[in-house]
Design a protein around this nucleic acid. Structure first.
Length: 567
RNA sequence: UGACCCAUGGUGUAAUUGGCAACACGUUAGAUUUUGGUUCUAAAGAGUCCAGGUUCGAGCCCUGGUGGGUCAACCA
């Protein structure tokens, strides 16, 4: 690339999402005193997944880029679904991604008092009322999207009565489901959310933070926008399905605001990935039904699952950056995510030798008992990562797939009469092999080596078509390797209605290889340490295996051009 | 028979706001390579859902269609 091109490429500005355009316009117009404050508002009812990462990158990223702040706020308005366990995992995952809320850790439950006061204020203004009807009746009175609703008989209840009933609801004098507080908006609105939405319901389960102080809890619509307002949020970024909630969001803000300040809700498209399912509820089912081995199962799209699988925060952020934010309901190809992780791992991981499916090669003319340490470059992409010594001897393991008795065309590896280089060591030639007559399985391969072809040596320039990775048999470290395929074999299990996603579960999604051999240097590898097993893919050391062996999770395979040739 | 939102190569996004449709992934071919990886080079692939309109000029603005999505939890 010429200097000019390089400069041009570097200078070409990254495209700016429509959201960022809105933000820049607002800032320019001096809205909200020219400040930007965002928030990331998870409900603590599950683990964060890569879809949340998309939101996190936007919420924290926009604030960071435009000199603002981003709060962490737990949307904990429904005690029956929420648990403290999730709060800790959420915080850990956000930090892992590399974002920080700088101590601004808030909870919707912090505002229960203010929210309650505001509800009473609405009642006094004739904008809210207690409805004594059961859920199904209220629901049917709402009509349907093409037919207006009808008003509740309690809609015009006197203010004092409303005030008293609501106060008694709060104290727990009534049963769950017996009464609700509704905003008095417009039963004929074409927008269902404006048809006197329920804003408070009676729940008697204790809340993980406020205990049994409250017997009434605000609904999402009555908590979210107001919480934004209380925190001084300027841009409330959420996913597309909340678009129809925006008029109601604005309606409450209108009742609440006392100055020019007002938060603005902007919606963007949710992340969908092929062969992946992102519904928290269904992910929870997978965990509970033991379809996977926990929230951090490396096949899960959760951040802890991806982390355990070997994904880096950088690769996830890069991916999010690549897919962008729009209002189109897109389905993103997992291959783009895999590209992002390969791109990152290629630069940062040391290359090592590991053999997943060992086949013993005996080098007949190499002195038994002799050991040479051959020098290998840890990472050709980054020479600062140095070199290491790997022991070589007369018996080595190679990949079973790297030998074929009858090789097809363009097979560049070992076969009778063929020569290959053992990377970093010698060129060897196959002179014979041992085959089990009953099973037809090749059990050993016999070779000779050419002493002059040692890497860096006299005839090291000699070319052969294939270069194999290997592990000295006597020095090899036993290891277990877990290969993960996609969890679903359907491109879009997320699009399936109800619980259909189960029938797309891929029974082949986990393969455990227990006879693997890896080079001795790996004996000291630490949990979550990442490597590229030469010619095999990127691997990550697992952290809590039940196996006594070293366990590796395969993050992702290398791009495999051979299988394409083979087809 | 409603309201709101959306529509650009196979996929995801761009298009200086009305000026020759670009980038990434993927695909194909070639070069390099002691990883069939990486890197590099090239190619194929959309004329922007449809029909009108405004304009010298429309992916972008207007009108009308078509297709898809969201909304009728005391979930968020």
């Amino acid at each position: 690339m010429s200097d000019e091109n390089a400069r041009e490429k570097e200078e070409s500005k990254p495209s700016v999402s429509f959201i960022e355009q809105f933000i820049v316009e607002d800032l320019k117009a001096g809205k909200n005193n020219g400040k930007i404050v965002t928030r990331f508002p998870p409900e603590p009812n599950g683990y964060l997944h890569i879809g949340h990462a998309k939101a996190i990158c936007l919420d924290f990223g926009m604030a960071q880029k435009h000199g603002g702040k981003c709060n962490l706020r737990f949307d904990d308005t429904n005690p029956v679904k929420e648990e403290i366990e999730y709060i800790d995992s959420i915080k850990e995952d956000i930090h892992w991604l590399g974002f920080d809320w700088e101590g601004r850790e808030f909870y919707a439950s912090d505002y229960f008092g203010k929210l309650f006061d505001f509800a009473n204020e609405l009642i006094k203004r004739g904008l809210a009322y207690v409805d004594d009807q059961p859920a199904d009746l209220i629901s049917s009175q709402k009509g349907n999207p093409s037919q207006p609703g009808t008003e509740s008989p309690y809609r015009n209840r006197p203010v004092n009565e409303n005030l008293e009933l609501f106060s008694r609801m709060k104290k727990g004098e009534f049963d769950e489901g017996s009464r609700v507080l509704r905003a008095r908006v417009d039963m004929t609105s074409p927008n269902m959310h404006m048809r006197d939405p329920i804003i408070y319901r009676i729940i008697k389960s204790p809340h993980h933070r406020t205990g049994s102080t409250w017997m009434v809890y605000p609904m999402y619509d009555f908590a979210h926008g107001q919480s934004d307002y209380f925190e001084g949020i300027t841009h409330s970024l959420c996913t597309l399905e909340f678009e129809v909630h925006r008029p109601l969001y604005d309606w409450f803000i209108d009742q609440l605001k006392t100055s020019d300040y007002r938060p603005r809700q902007i919606e963007f498209n949710r992340l969908n990935l092929t062969y992946t399912m992102m519904s928290k509820r269904k992910l929870l089912e997978l965990v509970k039904e033991d379809k996977v081995k926990g929230w951090d199962d490396p096949r899960m799209p959760t951040l802890c699952g991806l982390r355990r699988r070997g994904y880096t925060p950088e690769s996830i952020k890069r991916f999010v950056d690549l897919i962008g934010y729009t209002k189109v309901e897109a389905i993103n190809d997992v291959s783009l995510l895999e590209h992002a992780v390969r791109e990152d791992l290629n630069l940062r991981t040391p290359r090592v030798f590991g053999v997943l499916n060992p086949l013993k090669v005996i080098i007949k003319n190499y002195p038994a008992g002799k050991v040479e340490n051959v020098e290998l470059i840890n990472n050709p992409e980054d020479c600062s990562m140095g070199k290491r010594l790997v022991p070589f001897s007369n018996e080595v393991y190679i990949e079973h797939d790297d030998f074929m008795e009858i090789p097809p065309n363009k097979f560049f590896r070992l076969a009778p009469g063929m020569e290959v280089r053992l990377k970093g060591a010698y060129i060897i030639k196959c002179e014979g092999f041992k085959k089990n007559d009953k099973t037809g399985i090749i059990e050993e391969v016999y070779c000779t080596y050419d002493p002059d072809t040692r890497s860096g040596g006299f005839l090291s320039e000699k070319k052969v078509k294939g270069t194999l990775h290997w592990v000295s048999a006597q020095h090899a470290v036993d290891a277990e390797v877990r290969l993960y395929d996609r969890l679903f074999n359907h491109e879009d299990p997320a699009g399936q209605k109800d619980d259909d996603y189960r029938k797309f579960l891929n029974p082949e999604s986990l393969k455990v290889l227990t006879a693997c051999k890896v080079e001795p240097s790996l004996a000291q590898a630490k949990p979550l340490e990442k490597f590229q097993f030469q010619r095999l893919g990127y691997f990550c050391v697992d952290y809590d295996s039940t196996s006594s062996k070293l366990v590796f999770n395969r993050t992702v395979s290398l791009k495999d051009t051979w299988s394409k040739i083979n087809k």
